[in-house]
Each structure stands twice: as structure tokens, then as C-alpha cells.
């Protein structure tokens, strides 16, 4: 089982991204689970979302404390004292929303593999000023390889119908292609 921690802010679409990840797992005949940690949050406040992927049904219903992968929607969360490196498993993977080259990313040194994408930039270019969640899913598929980009795109189009789905799927695919991955 792969356990994933998604760090984001309210309004960035991480909860929806986690749900789409479950739908993408179904496309590949796998199991998935998304567990949001809702508080009394508001737009902009830090949001923790957890996800699991497995070949077998998942019976655990808890938060993720020891992630195999961390998806960081917003590097500025670290300025609030949020530590993306907390409780990491060995050989953990980081997927980060940043135009910075993964080789030079400071927190990258705690991870065995780092994927970076300018999710805001890709999203703005392909869709406009909307949440970067589809782009982050593309970067996740590229960096981890735990779910295929085709499954991600199909799942996006299921969750968001019509042109919204098509645009978001295109955005995920573009991010997938532009993600820079650095493995230690």
C-alpha cells in the first residue's frame, strides 16, 4: 500500500484531487482511498488531505502519518511551520508545485525522488486562473508512476463534465509532460 499526504490551502482543490486519484485507481483495477481532514477551515488556510493506493481493498481509516509520498501544493506552507518531511518513510517521494529545478530544491534532500512542476503556470496557460489540482495530479502520475496519466485524465473527465473536464485533463497531461524529476 502507498500512503500519500497532500499539503495545500483551502481552495486549491486538493480534496477533489484526492477523490480523482481514487477514480483513477479504479481505471487501473486498483483500490484507492481519500481521507480529508476537515476542520473549521476557510479559503487559504492549510488543509491536510490523505490518500492511499493499493492492489488490495484498504481497511485502514485514519490519517497518514508515515507517507510514501508528499504532494506539496504550496511551498509557502513551510513558512507557517508545516514540515513536509514529518514522518517520511524511507525512499519517500516529493511532488512539489514550484518552477524551481528539483536538483536545487532545498527540502528535496529529505526525499529519494523529487518531481517539480509550475502547476500555477501550467494551469493559467491552459485553463486560466483556477486551482492547480489537475496539474498536480499530472505531476504526481509522472513523479511516482503509481497511477497512469491516461487513468488520471479519464478520471478528471468523469469528475468534471464537458469542456471543464477536457481542459483539466489537458492541463494534467501538460503538467505530466513538463514535470522535472530528479532521483537521488
Amino acid at each position: 500500500m502507498k500512503e500519500i499526504k497532500i499539503l495545500s490551502r483551502g481552495g486549491q482543490g486538493a480534496v477533489t484531487a484526492a477523490k480523482i486519484l481514487v477514480a483513477a485507481a479504479i481505471k487501473e483495477s486498483k483500490y484507492g482511498q481519500a481521507v480529508p481532514n476537515f476542520g473549521q477551515e476557510r479559503k487559504g488556510a492549510p488543509v491536510y488531505t490523505f490518500a492511499r493506493l493499493d492492489e488490495e481493498p484498504i481497511s485502514t481509516h485514519t490519517y497518514v502519518y508515515h507517507p510514501h509520498a508528499v504532494v506539496l501544493f504550496d511551498l509557502f506552507l513551510m513558512e507557517l511551520g508545516i514540515d513536509p518531511c514529518a514522518g517520511l518513510r524511507e525512499n519517500a517521494i516529493l511532488v512539489a508545485n514550484t518552477p524551481v529545478d528539483p536538483v536545487g530544491l532545498e527540502i528535496g534532500s529529505s526525499f529519494a525522488k523529487v518531481g517539480c512542476v509550475d502547476a500555477w503556470g501550467v494551469t493559467k496557460e491552459i485553463i486560466g486562473p483556477v486551482p492547480p489540482n489537475a496539474a498536480m495530479l499530472g505531476a504526481f502520475a509522472c513523479t511516482t508512476g503509481w497511477v497512469g496519466i491516461d487513468a488520471v485524465c479519464t478520471a478528471i473527465e468523469e469528475f468534471m463534465t464537458g469542456s471543464k473536464g477536457e481542459k483539466n485533463a489537458a492541463c494534467a497531461r501538460a503538467a505530466y509532460e513538463r514535470t522535472m524529476v530528479y532521483a537521488r
Partner: peptide, 12 residues
């Protein structure tokens, strides 16, 4: 059903 852990968690 447990609030959030089932009500808002997504599964197959």
C-alpha cells in the same frame, strides 16, 4: 457512518 472518516472519505 462515522462523520468525515466515512461520510467524507472517498473509496471504491
Amino acid at each position: 457512518l462515522d462523520g468525515f472518516y466515512v461520510s467524507h472519505s472517498t473509496e471504491v
